[in-house]
């Protein structure tokens, strides 16, 4: 037998039941670790191919291990830069997702400062 935790009124729901936990909390769904997650804003078109446009916000988790294929925020010339990370047997490439922008090659991952790994793009539609 199912027992309702609160008295169930027939007809119009009680205003007291407005106090519920069911509302969607974006923090809970989009942020895994509050200590390591930052929101950043994209400036430029070099990641269009990945669905990341100028003015979009990205959710970046600094605690994630960057892997081949990760969209990362890397420090290049003292600036935070967004690129696709490619780790191959011949070296490491920071790829733009737009043919108009060149790739950046480095010998190994240790030659890079990876600031964080992007987990979501808040794309403006």
């Amino acid at each position: 037998m199912l027992i309702s935790p609160v008295p169930v009124a027939a007809g119009y729901p009680s205003p007291a039941q407005d106090y519920f936990d069911g509302r969607i909390d974006l923090n809970a769904h989009l942020i895994k670790d509050i200590t390591s997650t930052y929101v950043v804003r994209v400036a430029g078109e070099s990641m269009e191919g990945a669905g990341i446009s100028d003015g979009d916000e990205l959710i970046v988790n600094r605690a994630l291990e960057p892997r081949d294929g990760s969209v990362v925020v890397a420090v290049l010339d003292g600036e935070l830069t967004i690129k696709r990370l490619r780790i191959t047997s011949t070296g490491v490439v920071l790829q733009a997702e737009n043919p108009a922008y060149p790739d950046i090659r480095v010998p190994s991952l240790s030659d890079l400062v990876i600031w964080g790994v992007a987990t979501r793009c808040l794309h403006h539609v």
Binding site: Y38, V39, V40, R41, V42, A43, G44, E45, S46, M47, I52, D54, E57, L58, V73, L76, E79, L80, T81, I82, A96, Y101
Partner: peptide, 15 residues
């Protein structure tokens, strides 16, 4: 105020 104001988020370059 990078982490507390939506209008002042850090900028990442996509260029």
């Amino acid at each position: 105020r990078y982490t507390t104001h939506w209008d002042e988020l850090p900028t990442v370059k996509a260029t």
